[in-house]
Write a protein that binds this DNA or RNA. Sequence first.
DNA 1: CCGTATCGCAAAACCGGTTCAGTCGCTAGT
DNA 2: ACTAGCGACTGAACCGGTTTTGCGATACGG
Lengths: 337, 337
Amino acid sequence: MSRVTINDIARRAGVSKGAVSYALNGRPGVSEETRHKILDVAQELGWAPNRTARMLSGSRTETFGLVLARDPRTLGSEPFYMEFVAGLQSELSRRGYALLLQLTPTAENELELYPRWWSERRVDAVVVVDIRVSDPRVAALGELGVPAVFVGDPAMTGGFTTVWTDDATAMASAVRRLVELGHRRFGRVAGTPGLSHTRVRDLAFTQAVAAEGLTGTILHADFSDVAGGRATRELWDHPEPPTAIVYDNDLMAIAGLSALSELGISVPHDVSLLAWDDSALCTITHPKLSAMHHDVMAFGAHVGRRLFDLLVGAEPAAHLDSTPVLVERESTAPAPR
Amino acid sequence: MSRVTINDIARRAGVSKGAVSYALNGRPGVSEETRHKILDVAQELGWAPNRTARMLSGSRTETFGLVLARDPRTLGSEPFYMEFVAGLQSELSRRGYALLLQLTPTAENELELYPRWWSERRVDAVVVVDIRVSDPRVAALGELGVPAVFVGDPAMTGGFTTVWTDDATAMASAVRRLVELGHRRFGRVAGTPGLSHTRVRDLAFTQAVAAEGLTGTILHADFSDVAGGRATRELWDHPEPPTAIVYDNDLMAIAGLSALSELGISVPHDVSLLAWDDSALCTITHPKLSAMHHDVMAFGAHVGRRLFDLLVGAEPAAHLDSTPVLVERESTAPAPR
DNA sequence: CCGTATCGCAAAACCGGTTCAGTCGCTAGT
DNA sequence: ACTAGCGACTGAACCGGTTTTGCGATACGG
């Protein structure tokens, strides 16, 4: 099938290769009349561009890269990534761009990947997620000169284009609402400590709690169900356990809910739980989880648009995505007295 | 950086382009001595192949395609796909192959995608999942001549290479075990009715139940939490509700558990629940879900190996993956008397 | 000792596009 | 009337590899 090349079109239309190229790409250099004839012939022959050939001369690959460096099992049960990818895709596919997705178990693998992708000309730009504090990828990508959009705290992304959410404000509003509900002792089950957004939320949490003159305990986990359950139990083991716990993702919140219910502790009667991201998982538990809602698909789409900006030479900038907003369901309630 | 081409190597080593190509690809045509010199120079210059150029002449793209046509929100909370992709990746990346992943909301989009990918030479082969009964993709891919590995019931994949799991046997053993536990009335919350594996499991379920002279009710849902919860409530509304319910994925099982607990029904005291796939989600509920365990990552890896088989001209065949096996946790128990 | 494989490599063609440097004919300016 | 300028198009170079062909030198067989 479809072994039609522009040479065939040129021959058939009685013009040169170059003219065909101009015509098909809608650029000046041919008359309207000739252009039409060429387009007709192309249509008739069922021509489709050979992407590979186009890449070779154009040196654009029309592909963006994304590396997810996490344990695959966590990755699977963590809805964030799939939704993010779906949103990203929605922008890419409408412009014929493809996503090169690589899952690697470790962060070291990821660092090896970028030089390879770049020297092999496999991608035009990359998306970098899970930004860590003093992330080596900033320097690595900067050195290679790979166009990139970072997803995370702009303070950590060294001048790269960055899309971020104002987690500090979101966290402050979450704590404020819980205080309103009468809570005085707070717990936070945080994600991996090295991650920049974990840090941002840690700080915001500490400040928000301190601002009210209250106490808060932070335990770090790794976003996994197991760690989330463990941290929750540990919080409960305190002599004065918190009456409200804020989680860094949905999965840990569900695990926490499960752990508490195993201990015979009632949510939200004894303790309020607040998840983060608000995926479909939040509504399948009993009680349904209140959560800091964030439209992850829209977030992904936003990142996609910034990738294209990059290609047309946009200046690096920090772009603020929508701020997570509290959706109250059944897992938050007035503090027990 | 790294603008090194084989021309640079040739000039530096004082040989021709062709010789360099032979040397770098480890094929006959150059002496060991020259080969060594060339490899040394390549190393020294930090050469990396330009994948695009190689693709153009070689006509291999070193990329496989995968389309997931599902509602992105379901996709996100459904651990199956991410794990599958992770497994697939593990095989591809070790051989330098890339995965082109496309998420589309509808199945029609998917059908348009294959001709485009193929005529643009974007992929060497594709993986086809979620096989439906009389799936149009069989004919479409056959006509295009796209090498493909199907994931599903070999009876439905028209002579394509297929990787499948023996869901019929798995279902039979699940029912048998539940009968052993004293259950007599069964419910099944199935996936989308058009899917071939839903059909296979429907049939196996019906047969297994009938073989024991018992009754079983099947309700079709769409793998989503909402539909899973709804179906569960509906089953419970029967005059004689089932005492054991088998689900087609984890998500619906969790939603069912939540729906029942909302109705004040105790699992496993009043009713036993059995999930399918056994992702991390099964252990974060309370009670923990018993499940038909399937190593989805290994499954993905298996599919990956078959893709490479395809490239070296292996005959189409049906390859049986491991059969799901029952893992009993806390959601299954002897039938209430 | 001569004709013929074989080896090691250079040179060139090729993959399918894009792009640049000209060529040609026509119009407009002086 | 002569030239400058422009639009439309051709031909060729180019992107960076792979692959085919050809050629001189060496080894081999009769």
